[in-house]
Amino acid sequence: MLTQVLVQLVVVVTLMIAVSVALFVGRHRLRVTRTEWRTRLRDTAPALAVLTTVLLFNSIARQIVPDLSWMIGWNLTWAIYDIEGQFILWLQSFETPAVTAYFSFMYIYGYVFALTFPVVAYFALADTRPLRELLAAYTLNYTLGLVLYVFVIAFGPRNMMPELVEALLYDTYPQYQHLTRQVNRNTNVFPSLHASLATTVTLLAYRTRDRYPTWFYVTLGLGTSIALSTMYLGIHWAIDVLAGFGLAYVSVSLARVLVDRWSVSAWLASIRGRDADDDCEVDSSSDHT
């Protein structure tokens, strides 16, 4: 059942990306990309490697985080519920099958699309900085998010008020349970990574709006829908979503500062230069971390 859901996800998202590439990226950029992809890939390889490492580490860490949290974490569910109480209920009062279908689609497909398309779109730019910032911001989201997950135990609204907040996604489309439980634990709702990653994409889209003007408006819609979907489906509290916005802001700002601070390619080039020419000077302080 999991494979079936996964295949469906891959097919749908690939289609969405294909259409978006045609709409936003354009033939010209693709043509240039075909000639430049090697250098661009080499430029972004370090950022990509860091992200991959963090994601791999994340998938292992997620096995132990719940145990660790129950030992040292704070259980904030009641505090969150006490503060915002009825907001989720109000949001769910707009429930209709069509709305549920829309938000379920956004939560699963919209989210994966929102995360993957910018990678393709920024790769198609001659300037690799947006892509590297994007990858760095993703890395920061996952790292900081994981730290928060260790220290905060919080169950989502569907766990707190099962009869009032319907777990719309899992009851309407039980098959998705198989997918999301691969990624999420029910005590890891603060902050909402759905909200933070979608917001990260939106913030970066704003900064690249001169190159992809329409994409920025699309991400506004996507980001809002994804953030709303997590609450509408009873998975996250409003506070988790706000924390997600905060995390996105921090991640994007940090990524901006950190990217280009250390250049692996310059360092490699300098090594190569030294090999070739022995009296080449190496400024070790700014090369290697």
């Binding site: 169950f155 569907r158 766990n159 707190m160 008020m161 099962p162 009869e163 777990a167 029910n186």
Partner: peptide
């Protein structure tokens, strides 16, 4: 939590 025992949290509420 509801994932652990749905009826328990409802009773508690």
């Amino acid at each position: 939590s509801a994932d652990g025992d749905r009826e328990s949290i409802q009773l508690a509420q």
